[in-house]
Design a protein around this nucleic acid. Structure first.
Lengths: 294, 294
DNA sequence: GCGGAGCATAAGAAAAACTTTCGGAATCGC
DNA sequence: GCGATTCCGAAAGTTTTTCTTATGCTCCGC
């Protein structure tokens, strides 16, 4: 873990930012306003950035203060929640399968169709890294799996990035390069993808100099949304072939070019080594491997 | 914010749990092992739970320790990352539309189909509460909007919860109540839904005593997954009518019973009052209202 | 059985956090 | 416009927390 800022000072900052005043923050924390002021000053010096503007008898957040506030608030709120929740026992008898968003609906749910042991399975959709253990996942399906060097990892399948659009989408005679920048749908792949396949790389793979401006087109946060946007005729999208397979076979989407970018890593299954012998986990893993073969 | 545990002690706990030893933790933190020992002890007393078992010259995490470790580690790691990242400026010129997962793909993307101003829009899929401002959302589409009392809120539409299945799904002659528990798909609606529509409430609304065991069926974390599971023939699901509308009209899903549960709140648009006059925001808001009318 | 490693405890030292007081700037009310 | 009030900053002093040191106990490996 890299250097942690002074935690007590972060607490004073968060309270002051929320309250909008050192006096009010002091009341909430049960200290004087001078104490809050000094803590915030200490944090500013530690971070090398001013977090509040002081104007006579008022404080306002700076850009830097505003930028860090949501995450600081979230972390501290969650730590308080952890303490509050500790008294409530939470038993868990379900098998938790944690999946990255793009795979959950597009591949996993259809893949579970024939699994007799699906009762008692909880599917969680989340990005890397996920926790294993009591409150965490029993099995993780993700891309690459590098976030889990100390866990057992099994390759599931490898995919390629292809260009798709709605069947009736109007493509220029000259090819995709002639589309306006606004017709390219851009996907933020999420923290689970170490590399970020983009239109620039796809055109480069075709030996084409076209570089659509990423700021001009619709930008979405999941592969599922990219597919939905393409399906709705909002533009052309780059998506993993296998994940788009159901919709392509159903005719809701078409491949619009034969070029495909190889993806650098496998989609993998990850689980704690200690769980490898659990019958329900073994059955689920075996079934998912079988679903790939289909 | 509720009571926060001693933060320095949390830091000592996290380091010790990761290192597996108070001596190693002391080395990492630059203090003696006795200091770590005392901090952990102070935290255990504060929380009223033992976090480590001590056996002679070894420590192992208790269940309670294991239960809190992932979240404590995540919060502290993120706070360290916040500090590390503060030096990098991040400019943002896009209009960020933040949406709860169920609405993003099922309603929003189709609703954006005719919007001329969609270039430069970034869609983020996240649960409540979201931050507004520089690194946060410009506009939030969510259910109810109670997380944002200090923002401007406009109702968008109200929905009802209906029962759906795949067209070929085998339903008993006697009705849904005769299905086995394992055929009911259960949805964790997410933090954005104050109430959690469930099969028990739906049968109650029919004047039926049937109460499917929530532990027996497939449990999924989003409406989109519930729809996908139903579409794949994994069972029957309760979903918001309007969100299921596209798939029902396309014949991928069918209503399997006329009973519908009213949802308690509207889906709403939320934005900071100060942003109300921004032309791009106004245009987007107006367009979304128009999409509801269709 | 012995030595080494690591945790626990108690007492004391050092550092961090907080309080009090006073000055300055902004805001509010008359 | 003026006076009163509010609130932030700084400095000095006080209190609390954190850390260190020394010693005792248990476990593990040889």
């Amino acid at each position: 873990m890299s250097t942690l800022p002074p935690l007590n000072a972060l607490r004073a900052f968060e309270t002051a930012a929320r309250a909008g005043s050192f006096v009010a923050a002091g009341v909430e924390l049960g200290v004087t306003s001078a104490a809050v002021s000094q803590q915030v000053r200490a944090l500013e010096e530690h971070l090398g950035k001013q977090l509040f503007l002081r104007q006579g008898n008022r404080i306002t957040l700076t850009d830097a203060g505003r930028a860090i506030y949501p995450r600081v608030e979230f972390a501290l709120t969650d730590l308080a929640a952890v303490a509050a929740e500790l008294g409530e026992g939470r038993m868990r008898a379900r098998l938790v399968l944690s999946v990255i968003p793009s795979v959950a609906e597009l591949w996993l749910v259809p893949a579970l169709a024939g699994f007799e042991g699906r009762a008692g399975i909880e599917i969680r959709v989340e990005e890397d890294p996920v926790a294993f253990g009591r409150e965490g996942a029993d099995l993780r399906l993700t891309y690459g799996g590098h976030a889990y060097p100390d866990h057992q990892t099994e390759p599931l399948f490898r995919d390629r990035i292809a260009a798709v659009a709605a069947p009736g989408f109007a493509l220029p005679e000259e090819g995709l390069a002639a589309l306006p920048d606004s017709a390219f749908i851009h996907t933020d792949w999420g923290a689970s993808y170490a590399t970020q396949p983009a239109w620039a790389a796809w055109f480069a793979a075709k030996g084409d100099t076209r570089r659509p401006d990423p700021k001009a087109g619709l930008r979405v946060g999941t592969t599922g949304l990219a597919l939905a946007a393409a399906r709705a005729g909002l533009g052309v999208a780059l998506v993993p072939e296998r994940l788009a397979g159901v919709e392509i076979r159903a005719g809701a989407l078409v491949r619009i070019d034969a070029t495909a970018l190889p993806m650098s890593w496998d989609y993998v299954l990850v689980f704690p080594r200690a769980h490898a012998r659990r019958p329900r986990l073994k059955a689920l893993v075996a079934h998912l491997h079988g679903a790939v073969g289909d």
